[in-house]
Structures are given as C-alpha cells and as structure tokens.
Amino acid sequence: MTLEKQEMKITRHEVEHVARLARLALGEDELKALTGQLDAILGYVEQLKNLDTDGIEPTAHAVPMENAFREDGTRPPLPVELALQNAPVATDGCFRVPKVIE
C-alpha cells in the first residue's frame, strides 16, 4: 500500500508530451515543479476510485441544463476590417500566417 502511494501518477515524459501538445516551452525547473503538482492533482482525483460509481452517468456538464438552441436565422456578420482588426498581419482580406506546408 505504501509503495503504491509513492508511485507517480504522471511521468516527466508525459508532462513533456502534454506541454509539447499545448505549445508550452517549459524550463527544467518548471517541468520538475509541474510534474509534482500534476501528480498531486491526479492523486487527489484518484480518491474517486474508492467510491462505487456503478450506474452513475458521467457528468458532461456542471450546469444541470440541456438543449440551449438557436433557430436557424442569420445575423449580419462583422465587416471585414473589424474581423481582421486584431490580426498581427492581414493581407488581401486574410489573416497572414507563416507558410503552412501540406
């Protein structure tokens, strides 16, 4: 039991992987700190395993509500200038980005 408790819930390798997916460039110290923190969080959530959750529907949303619809009507879109206002660079009415190779 004590041995199991000491086992890490998340490895440094997994943290690096998740950081890469999130485009986060983490330094050595940050990696170390985050691995510890994430491990603690996962350990905390792990307590749920002690509960009997058979027959309980997984929660998909924290608000007990369903079916927020809008009817299929159109609204005037933004003028192009406004849509592009926050773009670092815009050309030909488009957002300009570094070349994407496919």
Partner: peptide
Amino acid sequence: GRYSQVDL
C-alpha cells in the same frame, strides 16, 4: 510564397 493566408 513565404506566407499562407487564412479565410474564416
């Protein structure tokens, strides 16, 4: 050809 453009 150094850039791509995005139309949303």
